[in-house]
Amino acid sequence: MGKTIARRAALLVLAGTVAACGLPRVGPNKSEIYAGSVEQQGDAFIVSINDRVTRATAVVPALGFDDAFLNAGIIGSDTISPGDVLGISIWENVDAGILTTAGAPASLSEIQVDGDGYIFIPYAGRIRAAGNSPETIRRIVTEKLASQTPDPQVMVARAAGNGTTVTLTGATGQGVFPIERPTRTLSAMLAAAGGVSVAPEIAKVRVTRGNQTGEVWFEDLFNNPALDIALRGGDRILVEADTRAYTALGATGGQSRVKFESKTLSAIEALAQVGGLQSNVADPTGVFVFRNETAEIANSVLGRSDLIGPQRMVYVLNLTEPNGMFMARDFVIRDGDTLYVTEAPYVQWTKLLSTITGSLASAGSIAALGNSVK
């Protein structure tokens, strides 16, 4: 009897010693997280996710073009721009004309429109070409020459090598591309360049025009035709993959920094991206999302109006509730979020018992070895 009591006492002492030393685990448990709440004199608001919370926090990055981009009309297929190269032919009805003789045209080839939009024609002077069509330029040249030679006949054509170009980076084909009749809009230019080189679901297209910049999701160009803006000479187009990411920690299938795989990402999709919960250790009642929330959203979530500045928020999902999976499906994960899953309470007890029994087995082996030496 005395030996049994002594063994039990030794077992309790061993258990206490092991527990005091601390067992390995993936992170804080639920009680430790709740201890950091505002209610417990901490600095984080802990909120259970419900329909109202999912609506208040469902913020997706707003991408689009402002009115300066949207209201810019499509450039006409025959509109001349700075950098264009023109070919001009002039006929005169006199034997000794100012530029040529009767029946033989004066051919002025490769006349480039300068940066200010002008060209120079002998005896006609400096003429505004940019913004005009070849027909308008023909009439202007004819009027200028008519006072110096009788009934001049003029032909104006845009030569190959359109000076109106855009710079395209990040697409399948990269380089400097002319704005031609088939490629006067953003989607048409991207298609002509071979499409995008990143997954369409996470591709963003940025257009810089002078000191203005607009950005749009690649898929939205096709879902919303109004976003398919008309291009202008000098536009710089950049196609890049979405850089948003979240961090997955705890009892999940993988612990890492994970990039978004779609424009919107729910909590259930975020868990799926890292392999879901570890079935042998995860606590489905302890799925947490840590986030720094803006004061506007924090006030809306908490039903307050006095919070100022960013607030630390901890959102809690209980997947075992009747609608827990629906809440996880509706809750939107945002850039910079930390998704953490706690271990089930029994896991620490299992580790404790395993450590104790292992220690006892080791002690027994040592005792047996001592007896054999004696």
Rank of each mutant, 00 (worst) to 15 (best):
residue 11 L to E: 06
residue 11 L to Q: 14
residue 16 G to V: 07
residue 16 G to Q: 09
residue 21 C to F: 15
residue 22 G to Q: 12
residue 27 G to W: 12
residue 31 S to P: 05
residue 34 Y to P: 01
residue 35 A to N: 13
residue 35 A to M: 11
residue 35 A to Q: 14
residue 42 G to T: 02
residue 44 A to E: 01
residue 45 F to V: 06
residue 47 V to G: 06
residue 48 S to W: 02
residue 49 I to Y: 00
residue 53 V to T: 08
residue 63 L to G: 09
residue 65 F to D: 04
residue 66 D to M: 08
residue 68 A to V: 05
residue 71 N to C: 05
residue 71 N to W: 10
residue 71 N to Q: 14
residue 77 S to C: 07
residue 77 S to M: 08
residue 78 D to I: 07
residue 78 D to C: 05
residue 78 D to T: 13
residue 83 G to M: 11
residue 86 L to F: 09
residue 87 G to V: 13
residue 92 E to T: 12
residue 101 T to I: 12
residue 109 S to F: 11
residue 114 D to P: 12
residue 118 Y to K: 15
residue 120 F to I: 15
residue 122 P to Q: 11
residue 132 N to I: 00
residue 133 S to T: 15
residue 136 T to V: 14
residue 144 K to H: 06
residue 146 A to N: 08
residue 146 A to C: 00
residue 146 A to R: 11
residue 147 S to N: 09
residue 149 T to W: 03
residue 149 T to P: 02
residue 149 T to E: 10
residue 159 A to C: 11
residue 167 T to G: 06
residue 169 T to M: 14
residue 171 A to N: 05
residue 172 T to G: 09
residue 180 E to K: 04
residue 180 E to R: 10
residue 185 T to D: 06
residue 187 S to F: 03
residue 188 A to G: 09
residue 197 S to I: 02
residue 199 A to N: 15
residue 200 P to A: 05
residue 201 E to V: 10
residue 202 I to D: 11
residue 210 G to H: 03
residue 218 F to V: 10
residue 220 D to E: 04
residue 220 D to L: 06
residue 224 N to E: 02
residue 224 N to Q: 07
residue 233 G to T: 04
residue 240 E to Y: 15
residue 241 A to G: 14
residue 245 A to W: 04
residue 249 L to R: 00
residue 250 G to D: 06
residue 252 T to E: 02
residue 255 Q to L: 10
residue 262 S to Y: 07
residue 263 K to G: 11
residue 264 T to L: 06
residue 268 I to Y: 07
residue 272 A to W: 03
residue 273 Q to K: 02
residue 275 G to S: 07
residue 280 N to G: 08
residue 282 A to M: 02
residue 283 D to Q: 09
residue 284 P to S: 11
residue 285 T to A: 10
residue 286 G to C: 01
residue 288 F to Q: 09
residue 292 N to S: 14
residue 293 E to T: 05
residue 294 T to K: 08
residue 299 N to I: 02
residue 300 S to D: 13
residue 301 V to H: 04
residue 303 G to M: 01
residue 306 D to E: 05
residue 308 I to W: 03
residue 313 M to K: 01
residue 315 Y to F: 04
residue 321 E to I: 00
residue 321 E to W: 03
residue 327 M to V: 00
residue 328 A to G: 13
residue 329 R to C: 03
residue 337 D to T: 08
residue 338 T to E: 05
residue 338 T to V: 04
residue 338 T to F: 00
residue 341 V to C: 12
residue 342 T to D: 13
residue 344 A to R: 13
residue 346 Y to C: 04
residue 348 Q to W: 05
residue 360 L to P: 11
residue 368 A to I: 09
